[in-house]
Simulated scan of single mutants.
Amino acid sequence: MATGGNIWAEQELFRNVEPLPSGHVARIRAVKRAARHYSADAIHAHSSWAGVYARIRSAPVPVIYQPHCYAFEDSSKGVVRRSAFRAAEKMMSRRTAATIALSPHEKELAEGLSRYNRVFVVPNVPSIEGPGTEKSDTRPPREFIVSMSGRVTTQKDPEFFAAVARTVRSRHPRIRFRWIGAGDEHLEQILHASGVEVTGWKSGAELARTLSSSSVYFHTARYEGFPLAVLDAAALDIPIVVRNIAAFAGTPLRIVSTTAEAADAIVRTASSDLKADLVRRGRLLLDKMNSRLQAGALDEVYRYVSEK
């Protein structure tokens, strides 16, 4: 079941796709009704709202919960709101047969909600197919573009991206900054005011074409589970720079903490052999986050739930 978005472009991957009705109460009822109608063995709920709809009341079958980040990690929200989010997740963890985490950090967060919470790490994988290992050596010369991909929200921190864009462009005005996605109008205006192009939503082949024209992929989120966009960039052999957040701890990626450090890494990529090193780091990341390992991890989750 879906509320819309990219799921509609991938309907052929599913036996059935049903839109959720409007209203939270109606959606809670619809999830339970669908589980019974299809004689489901389990509900796999992905994202916070899906987790609410599947777990706010006892479900007719076991629920596998896969958060799309934990909102209580968002430092931009006040202490009271973050505490409320954590309390809600803690309460609903009692109705969770298994939790899927995308990183060791997210696993630690999930286990902290309940000592009875059985948590599995299932690696994310790229959503687009890469062109092969020779791409980084055979690209023709082009203009230098720094990209970020995702919804324009406080979680992705477009203000940090904008600040780095201003720093870099003050020294190198020909370097372009581009945000692939859309979202909050006020935050989009901050990006525009800093000389950042906002492309609107892209998907499928269009996303791959847009992302592949990037010279550097720069991920600025405040917190994450593990972002697909970083893996997509790695699959396309794009040099990657990421912000210092817990989701990237222990990865081979180039991690930066400040706007000055980020600006320096981006500029060095434009003018030195750092580019080859960043591409290599992306390939190392995909050695640990790929379809083969994901399939094995998911099989372990479903076996565990079916045997409970």
Rank of each mutant, 00 (worst) to 15 (best):
R280V: 02
W201Y: 13
D299S: 10
S215G: 15
F120K: 09
N244F: 00
I56C: 09
A249P: 02
I190A: 12
I245F: 08
R209W: 07
L236V: 10
E206F: 07
L13F: 12
H192N: 04
S170P: 02
R151Q: 09
E188S: 11
R118S: 08
R115F: 07
L236Q: 06
A71E: 14
S306K: 13
M148W: 02
F14M: 05
H24S: 12
A40T: 10
V31R: 04
V230F: 00
D184S: 11
K156E: 08
A208H: 09
R29M: 12
L253C: 03
R115G: 15
V196A: 12
P131D: 14
W8S: 05
G183E: 09
S149K: 00
A162T: 13
D287I: 03
D137P: 02
G112Y: 04
T210I: 10
E185V: 14
Y38F: 15
K135P: 01
E300S: 13
L187A: 08
S194M: 05
A263V: 10
M289F: 10
V25E: 11
A249M: 09
A34E: 13
G225F: 02
F248Y: 15
E185K: 14
F218N: 03
A263E: 08
R33S: 15
F248A: 11
A182E: 12
R57G: 13
H37W: 05
D273G: 06
A163F: 05
Y302A: 12
L231V: 02
A110S: 15
S291C: 00
I100T: 05
E73D: 15
L285M: 14
A101I: 09
R171A: 12
R283I: 00
T138V: 14
S212E: 13
V279M: 01
R36S: 13
I56M: 08
D299C: 03
S272V: 12
R222M: 07
A40Q: 09
S127T: 14
L284R: 14
V242Q: 07
S48Q: 04
I245T: 15
H172G: 00
M91H: 03
R139F: 05
V230H: 00
P158K: 11
A234W: 07
R15C: 09
G181M: 03
H219A: 06
S75H: 07
H186M: 13
A295I: 06
R178H: 04
A205M: 11
Q66Y: 06
V164K: 12
E188K: 13
W49Y: 02
G5S: 08
R176W: 07
A295H: 04
D184M: 07
F160C: 04
S194Y: 08
D157Y: 09
A221I: 07
I245D: 10
E89L: 04
V241F: 04
Q66A: 14
Y217P: 00
R281T: 01
W179E: 01
H68R: 12
S257P: 04
N6W: 01
K275M: 05
S147V: 03
S58G: 02
A270F: 02
V256E: 07
S291W: 05
S212A: 13
R57I: 08
E10F: 02
R36D: 10
Y223Q: 10
E185L: 14
A97Y: 05
I240G: 01
Y302M: 11
G4T: 02
S306Y: 00
R268N: 08
P19L: 02
L278Y: 01
R292H: 11
P21T: 11
A35T: 13
I145G: 08
K156F: 05
T258Y: 07
V279I: 11
D232G: 01
L109K: 13
